[in-house]
Design a protein around this nucleic acid. Sequence first.
RNA 1: GGCGGAGUAGCUCAGUGGUAGAGCAGGGGACUCAUAAGCCCUUGGUCACAGGUUCAAAUCCUGUCUCCGCUACCA
Length: 546
Amino acid sequence: MSPHDRYYITTAIAYANNRPGLHTLYEVVGADVLARWHRMKGDRTRFLTGIDEHSVNIAQRAAELGTTPKAFVDENVALFKTAEDALLISPDRFIRTTDPDHIRAAQEMVRRAYANGDIYVGDYEGWYCPAEGFKAPSDVLETAQGTRCPNHPTVALQWLSEHNWFLRLSAYQERLEKHFEEHPEFVQPDFRRNEMLGFIRGGLEDFSISRSGASWGIPFPIMPDGSSAQLPDGSWNPAAGTIYVWYDALINYVTGAGFPDDKEAFELWWPADLHVIGKDIARFHTIYWPAMLWSAGLEAPRRVWVHGWLLAQGERMSKSMGNFLDPVDVVRTLGGDGARYVMLREVAFDRDTDVSWDSFVRRYNADLANDFGNLLNRTISMANRYFDGERPAVGPAAGLAAAWTETLARYIERLEGCLFHDALATLWEFVGAANRLVDAEQPWALAKASKAGDQDATRRLKAVLGDLVEACRLVSLAAAPFIPGAAPRALAQLGYEYGYAADGNGGPALLDDLRWGARAEQAGRLATAEPLFPRIETEAATPAAG
RNA sequence: GGCGGAGUAGCUCAGUGGUAGAGCAGGGGACUCAUAAGCCCUUGGUCACAGGUUCAAAUCCUGUCUCCGCUACCA
């Protein structure tokens, strides 16, 4: 793979109706790792995440709470930002769909679709809840009293039809099929691509992109006769309605790249290198979205990664089920680094995975406290003791150098392939090799022999500990995107400078520094060993509340 | 119903024709640099079930059972 000059990565924007659960932030952590990885490699990187704020539901919820939609989403945005900070998420922009430039972007995308002849006024029919709005067929209940809205079971649903704008998705079927065939990497994992391709081949229907009832949304910029919906005073004619769902939410990806105002930025960042999304919205991102972009004369994103769910005892974690983990609780116990590591090591990024508080704590203790943390600690302690704080130079002692070359190649392949759990497993196999080296060489025995005047033992001791220090340096650096808070502390204990900023920007090109012996010429002094990942006693490791 | 995926040790999973594997959890041991960590050894499986092909099947074929994903307008 040739190095990118720039890397633009996004997550789905979460629905701003509540505080975020860990399962919501899971994909954001995954994307953050890739963003940091590319920043550290030296790529010009842009990482976009944010919040979806419009919808009838939001307006309804705000009304129930006696507040305005804007005030309501402001509160939830604050909760998201707090949780993302705790998880060390480093977006270059946290986008909100109420941002003025996003509103302009969505309206411009609609205008372009219109200019291209891709949207038309048609009839949208469906169940309408007087208390809430239109309901999808899958969202209504059949009861003895008739069809009812699950949120308002006492109110009779009405079958309504209204004039709405539609996008001619049907016109893009052939182009979509061709795109999927010519770019097999467009949708990953492969089984998701096959599902989407099957859907396309089944025939595509146009979908509606406006609503006439809702007011909490982006004003639709065009009147049914094709004239502008903007009034002389600059406001928008309510009769034009609002933009519905996908022509609002999906647009955030181009807004975040500078569309439509900042042409220079947009030229640089679009098309996105990767959209990270959940499997529930795969169709919208891999079928609707390319068609919307093409209609506007823009390119489709290069790659869409579809991840699975976090499960609790086989059930999807969700706010409505109440079976989710609070990210703030997890961070309080495991730390931001621990929470990130455990989440991405324990959950496969390509499929659903059952998780639990116990599994998180077990993984933290086994991998971070016992394997890696203890390796750092014992290495630094011994080196300090035997060499009086002077860092032993990497020596041609053991087999770790060759193992590292293999480890790194596999690690990069899996990391860039979004298989984070496999990437970490690869790295931790190397941690195991380093721990086994300690027991095989028994530096404490070498030190004793050295003290007794054995020159061979002296040389051997330096070489072994030099290699162990180097192994610690490399693992700390390679894992830095996963544990961005702990990595600088690990390197500081090893007596190395950490040249990267808090978000991973700046510093040396990471791949150069990840070569075995890259810093061999640099002398340094070790700091006192301090446990980076204190072991968690299971009694203390109980979530505050369900 | 159609298409696709999965059923392997207590848990999570790897293993696409040649004597059943890993990590974690459980048990034992030797050591002591270390966060009572690490290291070594070990208990544990009729590889969903029934047939078939083959010298040989977790692996290929047929059938059955179970679970999951997709099968259009939720943010």
